[in-house]
């Protein structure tokens, strides 16, 4: 089954998403944008060691990925999922702690930036190898079923770049074989680092792969928040209700470099004129104001509140102690008596 959601502004997608939900999602998108702008600025100011990877242009998709998850669900976010992470319960403080090197972050300085997980809220810590988190989600879901839990769902994201790895193929297939309640949201942001679609894959539409794996497939314009909410929300609901695994492919453009070290000069100017290349945050704001779901004063208030939250998260993390090599517990295993000791 292949579904294609219509664009916001078309009457069909509006009916499915109440404007309260739309505004709730928009606030998360706005928070993500303001927060990631701050992270990028800290990076440019030399305040962050290592890379900064942001999801500019992907906030609508990512927000929808987190918004429909519930306690007991599993989220395996990737590098452009600040919105999904926040929406599904990771505090901004854990992000700033990780980026700014506080020993109090969930990774304690042992891993950085977007590799962080947040297990308290069901969020796995990704490894950099793309597709590797798919079977891990499958295993979490399989174990939940073995333990007799019900009503849970697992969601992970990928890009069109990550769709081309062997791990993604194995993972997508084993999810379907195990019949676990699984949703894969793939954002085609049109570049694997700098490599465009024509050197990434040769099929007409990535969503066509859904049928080959026994998934239900959906494609959306990733700049259209209403479509993202309707389709990704619907996919989560279908999987939770016992449907087959779901593949959602979103068309959008990454409105930033691969990381903040990258100026993305390889993006051709004509591509930026595509409908799916627009800024989803700006589009969502315009639509909310146009329909009088939100007035300019309330929006200004939101921005003020969010900036205060962001500043507080940054300032708190900056005051906290960094990890210290001489005090570190250099032990990679939980079973201490089995640690191998090499005399020096």
């Amino acid at each position: 089954m292949l579904q294609t959601a219509k664009r916001a502004g078309d009457s069909a997608s509006h009916k499915a998403v109440p404007h309260e939900r739309y505004l709730e999602a928009f606030r998360w998108m706005l928070q993500t944008r303001i927060f990631e702008d701050k992270l990028a600025s800290l990076y440019r100011g030399g305040m962050i060691t290592g890379g900064v990877y942001i999801g500019r242009g992907q906030e609508a998709v990512s927000t929808a990925c987190g918004l429909f998850l519930q306690k007991g669900d599993v989220l395996a976010p990737l590098i452009r999922d600040q919105a999904a992470r926040a929406t599904f319960g990771e505090p901004l403080l854990n992000v700033t702690r990780t980026y700014l090197g506080s020993r109090q972050g969930s990774m304690r300085g042992r891993d950085g930036n977007i590799h962080r997980g947040y297990p308290e809220a069901g969020q796995l810590a990704m490894i950099s190898h793309l597709g590797a988190m798919i079977p891990v989600v499958v295993g979490k879901l399989l174990a939940k079923r073995m333990k007799g839990e019900e009503g849970f769902v697992g969601l992970t994201t990928i890009g069109e770049g990550g769709m081309q790895t062997g791990a993604t193929h194995e993972g997508m297939n084993i999810a379907a074989v195990e019949k676990v309640p699984f949703v894969l949201v793939a954002s085609n942001n049109h570049f694997a680092y700098s490599t465009p679609n024509d050197r990434e894959f040769a099929c007409a539409h990535l969503v066509d792969r859904a049928r080959g794996y026994g998934y239900e497939g959906h494609q959306i314009d990733g700049t259209d928040l209403a479509a993202c909410l309707e389709v990704i929300g619907g996919a989560v609901e279908r999987a939770r209700a016992g449907g087959p695994p779901q593949l959602v492919v979103a068309q959008l453009l990454r409105l930033a470099g691969h990381g903040e070290h990258d100026d993305a000069s390889y993006v051709p100017p004509e591509m930026k004129k595509e409908r799916w290349a627009q800024d989803c945050v700006a589009l969502t704001e315009q639509l909310a104001l146009k329909n009088n779901w939100l007035d300019a004063e309330a929006l200004k208030q939101w921005r003020t509140e969010i900036s205060a939250e962001v500043d507080k998260a940054v300032e708190t993390a900056q005051r906290e102690a960094a990890p210290v090599g001489s005090e570190e517990d250099w032990c990679a295993m939980s079973t201490r008596e089995l640690v191998d000791v090499v005399g020096e």
């Binding site: 988190m133 079977p135 891990v136 295993g139 979490k140 062997g166």
Partner: peptide, 16 residues
């Protein structure tokens, strides 16, 4: 699918 077999086992192990 050796990669996915181990990945699935990792997820299950983290789940207890």
């Amino acid at each position: 699918s050796e990669d996915a077999m181990v990945g699935t086992a990792i997820g299950a192990a983290m789940e207890g």
